[in-house]
Amino acid sequence: MNNVFVICEMDEGKVADVSLELLTKGRTLANTLNCKLEAIVLGHKLKGVETQIFPFGADVVHIGDDPRLDPYTTLPHAAIVNGVFGELKPQIGLLGATTMGRDLGPRVSSALVSGLTADCTALEIGDHEDKKAGKVYKNLLYQIRPAFGGNIVATIINPDCRPQMATVREGVMKKEIYDPNYKGVVRLIDVNAYLKDEHLVVKVIERHMEKSRVNIKNSSIIVSGGYGMGSKENFQVLYDLAEVIGAEVGASRAAVDAGYADHDRQVGQTGITVRPKLYIACGISGQIQHTAGMEESSMVIAINNDPGAPINKIADYVITGDVMEIIPKMIKYYKKNSK
């Protein structure tokens, strides 16, 4: 009872990175709260999946293995999670902010009348004093996220409702093995106890999944463009530079919204969080929406024609000027000086 739960997601037979990242965070939270960490995995052909999860410090792994749970559809998953949460009363429930987590989370939180905060960038434990009611709440989950297009950072709490639920995007939390020999217990979920015919009304007719073409998250150098690039055509110079120095191309949300780059290149709170060796920000103003996803880069070069751009404050090198003039020069001098 009152443990920390992570709802895990499967990705081609493996537990998804975002779930392992949440387990790592969940273990830290459980240690602070002095409670257990439990995981739920739903899908089909999950034999042995617990061995991927235990090293991240899970004390209990609940497995629901049934052909009707793969591929993911909302209602069967929600019915089981509602049932398990209803019986085991977690104090915290975490999901990846993936298309699955952001589909399942709100459905569950509505059914259980619990609060849910989307796309958190930090999770902490802390107290809260409600002065009006003269009440002090101990050990609440602080759900921290940028809001309002990234212009403010809000700390959200759920004082009275349980579980306290949050989704977190891939890459935001760090994935770290807690103990390679950590042993927990497996509990098999009796799927038939929760699943009714009425949950099976939505059918997946066709599915085309492709391997992600873009690998921003694991790239050690990222050349990123913002709205200041001006056009999709101008983005080409970023691809050119990336090609030459062995980098991947990223983009700010404004650039993606404007159609300059595809969504899978978006860096930031509503995109991917990256920690490269070098991050070159071109024509990016640096709203927190964006910087939340790249501020842990080892080195940042900001190229911007606005000397007052917020991104300059977190940059190691600031080049003030025209991106379209500077990038070709970088390519030229890289070619000249590298062997």
Partner: peptide, 10 residues
Amino acid sequence: PTKVKTIENV
């Protein structure tokens, strides 16, 4: 269920 505890300017 959710309350805003604090809001910080960036």
